[in-house]
Each structure stands twice: as structure tokens, then as C-alpha cells.
Amino acid sequence: MKLKTKSMLVLLAATGVVAAPLHAFAQNTVTLYGAIDEGLQYTSNVKGKSNIQTTSGQDSGDRWGLKGVEDLGGGLKTIFQIENGFNLNSGNLNNGGRIFGRQAYIGLQSDSFGTLTFGRQYDPLVDMLGPLTANGNWAGSLLSHVYDNDNTDNSIRVSNAVKFVSNKYAGFTLEGMYAFSNAAGAFANNRLYGFAGQYVNGAVTVAGAYLQVNGNATTNAGGAVSAADTDFLAERNQIFGGGINYALTSAATVGFVYTHTNLTNTTGSEYFGNLANAANSLHFNNFEVNAKYQFTPSFYGGLMYTYTMAKYDSNAGQARPHWGNFGGMVDYNLTKRTDVYMQVAYQRASHTPDFAAPLGQAVLVGTDAPSSSMNQTAVLVSFRHLF
């Protein structure tokens, strides 16, 4: 829903939210938008027992936001976006309880060069490589890679960030980001930097990305990444990868994505808890194939499979866990803004030695806790409205 700023401010002023001069903002255009996604989910094994529960925002995180633009003339515009994430079932704020925890930035957009923004933002890997995966495009959290170790499901949210996205030239778009630690005398303690590129030519889309986080929130809570914004507690998190999508026809698309994650001095994760023995190094290699078919303008289906190999090294020993993730989704649009969908996901983990526990337990992203075994299955039926 689009509202001229003057109209919006009149409405807000009438409710006591805003009491500012209207004429100063008359040239702005502001868009109010959001998503509400609510479903029922069955999980086969959560700490040894099956579970049926209501679940919020599995495919499209529940949100509302405002984004705006003002034309400054000469091909230059001011832009901003603030976006709130919440849990529909509880009404609680997501993203560590932040009011605008999903995004909050301001910047300048140039018709000649690109867009420069400042604030809390999505990183280049999420923007350009994520859309080539199933979970980063037409599916959601349940179809993510193991622990979302490569951030293609956008687990890492970045504060204190400066980002530049180029305009598209001959099919190429480039993006770079640097997020500050904001710590005096500790410039590299909890900073993030990354870059990505994407090429689009007809039926083919190719992308590559690199992302690195130095330090973590346990030593600098005000840095680029907080404890609520990341999957792993590690001294360093390094991710890189590439992928390709190819449109076989106007209705059928297939894709392949490879990513590598390299973690240093890892003590645990929000998904599996604390490691029995901290990992001096923990590596993940993810190989995903996916396919989507648009049966009709209002109905599509998709499948994905990801094989993940890990290398765990600690003072207690070495282990080589691996996982297989399979997922599928069908979606039917009741209207342009309202749809119903169903997702099925299955994960099988490998056996690991006791010193590498709990890496031998299955745990799908989007479930409450790990399985007590090497297998976990989830089935979700959800109702979604976009505005």
C-alpha cells in the first residue's frame, strides 16, 4: 500500500504519533508493507518426542516496514527503509527484541552509479547468492542448509554497516559491504566485510559471494553481529560460494549452489547448543541442487536436495560428520496477496564420535530443537498474506 508522506503524516498526527510540519516532507513517497505467515507444523522428533505446533514466519518472516524515496534531482535520490520482525503467535519482537531488527538504513541512490546505504542491512551473500538457493528464493527455513551454516537463509543480520550496490552493467551487478566493530582500540573485534557479484543473461543467472566475520558478540556486543544475529559462537566465520540458475522454459527452473564455511575456535551454535569439545576448526561444504515448476500462474512446486560434509578438528580428536537434506514445497495463490503452501523436509545425519557431540543429531532449521536420533522430519501447512 503506497501513501504520499503528507497523507501518512496527517493520519499519524491525528493519532498523536507525529506532530511535525507537513510541508517539509511533501515530496517524499513512503510505502507501508509487510508479511504475515502462520501455520501448523509437525516434527517427528524433538528431543525424543514428536510435536505438533503453531509456527510463525517459516517461509516469509512476519514483518512490517516502511520504505521511502525523495527525488533530489540530477538523477540522485534519498532512500530509507525500516523493517520490524515479530512472532505472530506471541506478539514478541524477533531479532533480539529490536524494534527494527530486520533492517534499518538510509542512503543515496544514483541513476549513474548505484546505491550507497548506512545502517542495519542484509549482507552481499544474502542479496546475490541466497536467491539461487531454494531457501533463499521460493522456499524458507525448513529447506535451509544444515544449521544455515552458510547464511543463505539470512541468519546473520549486520549492524553498523556501509553497503554499496552498483547499477547493472551488461548484465553484471557488484556489491560490497563493511560493518564496523564500533569499539575503540579494537577495530577488528566483531567486524564484518563481504562482497558479491551477479550476472544475468536471458535464462542464466550466475552469482558468487564472500563473507567474513571477525570476533563475536561475547567480547563486543555492540559490533557488527550480536549474539541474536548469528548461528555460531566462533572467533572467525568465513563463507564463500557460487551458484547458477537456468530457466529451461518459462515455467521450469533448475539450479546448483556450492558454499564453503570455515569456522575458527567454535564453542557452539544456537541450533545444537555447546560442543562437547570446542572445535579448533569446523568446516562445512554444501552442495545443493534445486528445481521449481510453475504449473499455472497461481500454482508452483519445488524440490531441493543438499549434501553437506563437515570437518571437525579439536584437541579431543577429529570427526567427519555429514548430512543429507531433502525438501519440497507446493504453493497456491488464492489472490495476488494471499496464498497457502505446504512444505516437507527430511534430514539424516551421520554417526559421530562422542567427543564431537552433538554433531551426530539431526536438526532442521525451523524446528525447535535437535532430534534425539540421526533423523528428523517436518511437515508444515501455512497461510500467508502480503500487504
Rank of each mutant, 00 (worst) to 15 (best):
V379R: 05
N214L: 14
S166E: 13
L22E: 15
E270D: 13
I239P: 00
Y341P: 13
G119S: 09
G242Y: 03
T5Q: 14
W64S: 03
I36N: 11
L386Q: 11
V363K: 11
D354F: 02
L11G: 11
Q361Y: 08
G202L: 04
H351Y: 04
Q81T: 14
K4M: 07
L359V: 02
G194K: 07
N149M: 01
I99D: 12
S110K: 09
V254P: 07
A357P: 01
G34E: 10
V379P: 10
F80C: 12
F287R: 04
V146I: 13
L72H: 10
Y122H: 10
A19I: 01
R348D: 00
Y210V: 06
T117P: 03
L93H: 08
R157T: 12
N94Y: 05
N325I: 15
Y193E: 08
M8W: 13
A19K: 15
R98K: 09
E235Y: 01
G85K: 11
G194M: 07
N160G: 08
Y312W: 02
N216G: 09
A196G: 11
N333I: 04
N94P: 01
N149A: 11
A209V: 04
G107N: 07
L192Y: 12
A170M: 07
G241V: 05
T54E: 12
L88A: 15
V200P: 04
A19H: 12
F180V: 09
G48E: 13
Q121K: 04
N285W: 00
L174M: 15
L116E: 13
P124R: 08
W64D: 10
A183P: 00
L211D: 03
Y169T: 10
S50M: 05
D229E: 15
N277G: 01
N84D: 14
H260D: 04
T173F: 06
D62F: 05
I106F: 15
K311Y: 05
S44P: 06
V365Q: 02
T55Y: 01
I106T: 14
Q58K: 08
K163Y: 06
A209G: 08
V330W: 06
L233I: 11
D148W: 02
F299A: 10
S372I: 09
W323H: 09
A186G: 07
Y210C: 07
Y178C: 02
T5R: 07
A13S: 15
F195T: 07
S314K: 07
S181F: 02
Y105Q: 08
G130N: 09
L129W: 11
A35S: 10
G222D: 10
V330C: 09
H283R: 10
K336W: 08
